[in-house]
Design a protein around this nucleic acid. Structure first.
Lengths: 195, 195
DNA sequence: ACCTGAACACCGTTCAAGT
DNA sequence: ACCTGAACACCGTTCAAGT
């Protein structure tokens, strides 16, 4: 029921995860507590569904942006991917912040793994199409890039650090991913992943 | 009381944060529930203290390793710092995994910020002493490096992804930090943080 | 079929009573 | 001074009874 999803996010933003109770969600959604339990087997399933919906939306927009990076240069791909991740995160930044706490509680590791794997698929494809460089172990490389960008942003966002504003993060992530890809491109003798 | 710290970690590892109850901790520590509340004002303060102790220990060993990197080259510093973070994390990896869930719940953002800031201080000093490169905005650069390494490792560890074992992470983080520093060193026209 | 809400089990926290 | 544990308020979840 869409009303329960809406109510969940509202309750989460209003009182935080520590006070996120099924009673409050049901009340906010205008249904009885019994009705909530007809749609979700327990509190955890409810919050998991909310997170899944949010992640799916976010990844979809990143995938779209990735398609536009096909056959571009190393620098364009690195910068373009960083921009895509930042845009997707900031599009609903308040929700991203609110969902951080429950994510670790709920079976978050599994959700994050699935989200990272899916995004990495899109990135691996783009890396393969790169016009001015080629890479070994594109899948693993893509996964590390995805995890790096998303976990750094998540940490920076929840820390609320004023010195790390959006444009600072963009500039540094661009340099980081760009520098990383240059180190890892085939033919570079520096920083081989295995010796 | 040391027994309560010990008991907390044991309970956390045995039943997870979802079932981490003050009753269980008191029972495991061999004291009554009332006694627990003489030492800690509430459940949150207890778990926060446990996390603070762990973080302090971990950061101290990283700071030690950093001291040995003074006046070394860019590559040595990048590799040495990555190795130090990985060693510190793996020294008590089961505890690191167990503390991930409560960290997000408790005032984790603040703890993480403080830990990152302290570690970044040590890194900034080492960057300043680098023998073959100099950097602008060392403090900010150091903070980004610290956040990147620790958040990537935390994510990789809690995801339990088999493809991302310790040595893979080491090789990739080395390439990432090394590539990042090269992009950001003074005199490099590529990837300027501000245009 | 779908909804309701009293009832149950359990947890965080307190505080009057013990030593 | 320090410890105890029954008692209270509150939350997740169930299910017999309603519509």
């Amino acid at each position: 029921m869409a009303a329960l999803f809406e109510a969940s996010i509202q309750v989460l933003q209003a009182v935080g995860y520590r006070n996120f109770t099924t009673t409050r969600v049901a009340e906010r959604a205008g249904v009885s507590i019994g009705t909530l339990y007809q749609y979700f087997p327990n509190r955890q399933a409810l919050i998991t569904s909310v997170i899944e919906r949010y992640l799916d939306e976010r990844i979809s927009t990143i995938e779209q942006h990735c398609r536009e990076l096909r056959a571009k240069t190393l620098d364009e791909i690195a910068n373009g991917f960083v921009d895509a991740v930042i845009a997707a995160k900031w599009a609903r930044i308040e929700v991203a912040r609110a969902l951080h706490e429950p994510l670790a509680d709920v079976g978050g590791a599994e959700l994050v793994r699935a989200a990272a794997a899916r995004t990495a698929g899109a990135v691996a494809e783009v890396l393969h199409s790169c016009s001015d460089a080629s890479f070994r172990e594109e899948d693993r490389l893509a996964l590390l890039i995805v995890i790096s960008c998303s976990s750094v942003l998540q940490t920076a966002i929840t820390e609320q650090s004023p010195p790390l504003d959006r444009e600072t993060l963009r500039a540094h992530l661009r340099a980081m991913i760009c520098g990383y890809l240059r180190q890892m491109r085939a033919g570079n003798s520096q920083g081989e992943p295995v010796r």
